[in-house]
Nucleic acid binder design. Structure first.
Length: 599
RNA sequence: CGGGAUGUAGCGCAGUGGUAGCGCGUCUGUUUUGGGAACAGAAAGUCGUAGGUUCGAUUCCUACCAUCCCGACCA
């Protein structure tokens, strides 16, 4: 491609709309343009990058025996009613765009394709002989994100590869899951990315095991905890660890002490000269179930620990049936305003005890009349502990479960693991922290969707069984931007060779020098002929402009047909290292071809 | 949805109760030609939208819309 003919508009200044480096650079370098919030146009250079990524994904998926197909983005609501996700996805989760056609039929724009694929499986898969099977597609997904962010990182329309596998049993599912794990590692490695596979929470998709593939980058939205021995890595949402050892409580008798101005654990421990591990703190949450019922949740947890809201949410979803609901739509720590809506009197904030009376909750419609009390495992074994006295300015010390407080029946694990905690598998290892961008996520769905939608197969005994399913996603457009986030410098993008829009660029510093133009043209032709995807900067611009643009758009190899041509050489600069060398004209093509081939 | 901010030329910004300017970019010409050239000239804006206050609003007020940032959601 000749730059003189390409739509390439680069900006000198950072666009105001962008916050993180990769977003700024993609806009500045003319790769993307925002059309609306979370909606982007992929310009010619970007589309090439996306095609490169897609092709790598395709090759690795095909290598596992998966088959490419293409499912509709426009999906009838009936399918989603069947799986039970229509209401949660259009209302509670609110992630699906929905619309009504002229026949008053309700449709959704596909945020994901479990329903469609399960309908196909139900139709087409009849016998165990057809299994296992893995179908995938690469297409745009639509999600009504509450807050689109960071360019392609969280768009409302984005490109994703999603795959769905079908099996006779769990063992077969696990095998494909493992294959996908390997394929995903290959994909990310081939894209030239630094990444980590981590244990993950499976969220709204559901199912049992799930693993995320995180591209390591400071701007990542997720925190990863891992051990240096490489044996453990998990999203902080899912991570587990050993809590710190308990320091014995200095109190031996049960009594109430005045502890003014100790609403925080730190101040309390300072005043009472005790360890936070001797404290039972009681954290209040407010959750709203999808049937509109508000439930006040009181979690008793050890003073030095914090609540992991994802784990808490999972616990609350499990309890939904107790409130005649199917899922929760909100979870928050109620602020003063929120408390006013349900409290009958001001709460002794900072001094709450595990047995705070239910009478603090006003009798109102849609508000559960009792606190949902649960205790985190870390707090169950404490003895002679310190906790609130349900009275501002006072704490109880030397307290014990059973003697002084009933231990809540719900014993849960909702503590958040933190950097520095000891690892479960090996207490000599401590958890390290890193930030990452979730580029891929693989799930073992089990029979959740097949049972809901009646997708069964006939086994060897002639009996109908639900099909076991797995699903596997990669954010193609997100991955592309994450690659930039991981690799750039003050001059611009540094693409890994495998996903760069072009491998090389031939620059003619002076377009009026016809000899150099001829040499450059010839080089350009020859490079392309041997498979080195090459740009020719034949624009009527000064050399400086061409160098700046070349660095900004991040082409891996830059060939300048300039001064050294008098010695029969051209200058070749590697974008990543900025290393420059003069290479004899006749060797350039083979040299670059080699470099590109080896990447 | 809660909290915060911003909307003025293609981009980045300044500014004013009397209807607008700067830098970059764009176009023309001359010179220049290996790290975003210099000079001369030119084009380009219903000052986010709708109301209101006012003799007069881009400026003050109100509402709405859009965009961005912090939280819950997710590839």
């Amino acid at each position: 491609m000749r730059l003189s003919q390409m739509l390439l508009v680069t900006l000198r200044e950072d666009p105001a709309e962008a916050e993180i480096p990769s977003h700024k650079l993609l806009v500045r370098a003319g790769y993307i343009r925002r059309i609306g919030s979370g909606i982007y146009a992929y310009l010619p250079l970007m589309w090439r990058v996306l095609q490169k990524v897609s092709q790598i994904v395709r090759e690795e998926m095909d290598a596992t025996g998966a088959q490419e197909s293409l499912l509709p983005q426009l999906q009838p609501s009936e399918l989603w009613q069947e799986s039970g996700r229509w209401d949660t996805y259009t209302k509670a989760e609110g992630i699906m765009f929905s619309l009504i056609d002229r026949q008053e039929r309700q449709l959704g724009l596909g945020p994901t394709h479990e329903e469609v694929i399960t309908a196909i499986a139900r139709d087409l898969i009849r016998s165990y002989r057809q299994l296992p099977l893995n179908l995938y597609q690469i297409q745009s997904k639509f999600r009504d994100e509450i807050r689109p962010r960071f360019g392609l990182m969280r768009g409302r329309e984005f490109i994703m590869k999603d795959a769905y596998s079908f099996h006779t049993d769990e063992e077969s599912l696990k095998k494909t899951y493992k294959d996908m794990d390997v394929a995903y590692r290959n994909i990310l490695s081939r894209c030239g990315l630094e990444f980590r596979a981590v244990e993950a929470d499976s969220g709204a998709i559901g199912g049992s095991g799930s693993q995320e593939f995180m591209i390591l980058a400071e701007a990542g939205e997720d925190e990863i905890l891992y051990t240096k021995d490489g044996k453990y890595a998990a999203n902080v949402e899912k991570a587990v660890s050993l809590p710190a050892d308990v320091v014995t409580s200095p109190f031996s008798s049960y009594q109430k002490l005045a502890t003014p101005d100790t609403a925080t654990i730190a101040k309390l421990c300072d005043t009472l000269k005790c360890s936070p591990t001797a404290v039972v703190k009681n954290v209040l949450y407010e959750t709203i179930y999808d049937n509109g019922i508000t439930v006040l949740v009181l979690i008793s947890i050890r003073g030095d620990e914090d609540v992991n809201e994802v784990k808490l949410q999972n616990e609350l979803v499990k309890l939904a049936a107790d409130y005649d609901a199917s899922t929760i739509i909100a979870l928050s720590v109620p602020d003063a305003d929120a408390q006013q809506k349900w409290s009958s009197q001001p709460l002794p904030l900072g001094y709450i005890a595990p047995d705070i009376e239910d009478s603090y909750i006003s009798k109102k419609e849609n508000i559960a009349p009792q606190f949902l009390r649960m205790v985190d495992k870390t707090a169950t074994d404490l003895t002679n502990f310190v906790t609130g006295a349900n009275e501002s300015g006072y704490h109880l010390v030397g307290a014990n479960w059973r003697d002084n407080f009933a231990l809540p029946k719900l014993v849960v694990d909702v503590r958040i693991a933190q950097k520095g905690d000891r690892a479960f598998h090996d207490p000599t290892q401590t958890l390290q922290s890193a930030r990452g961008i979730e580029a891929g996520h693989i799930f073992q769905l089990g029979t959740k969707y097949s049972q809901a939608m009646g997708a069964t197969y006939t086994n060897e005994q002639g009996k109908n069984e639900p099909i076991w399913m797995g699903c596997y996603g990669i954010g193609v457009s997100r991955l592309a931007q994450a690659a930039v986030e991981q690799s750039y410098d003050e001059d611009g993008i540094i693409w890994p060779v495998a996903i760069a829009p072009y491998h090389a660029i031939v620059i003619i510093p002076n377009i009026n020098d016809s000899e150099k133009v001829q040499v450059a043209e010839k080089l350009y032709q020859e490079l392309n002929a041997v498979g080195v995807e090459t740009l020719l900067d034949d624009r009527k611009e000064r050399a400086g402009v061409k160098f700046k643009d070349s660095d900004l758009i991040g082409i891996p190899y830059r060939i300048t047909v300039g001064r050294s041509l008098s010695e029969g050489k051209v200058e070749v600069v590697t974008r990543k290292t900025k290393e420059s060398q003069d290479i004899p004209l006749e060797e350039v093509v083979s040299t670059i071809k080699n470099w590109v081939g080896n990447c």
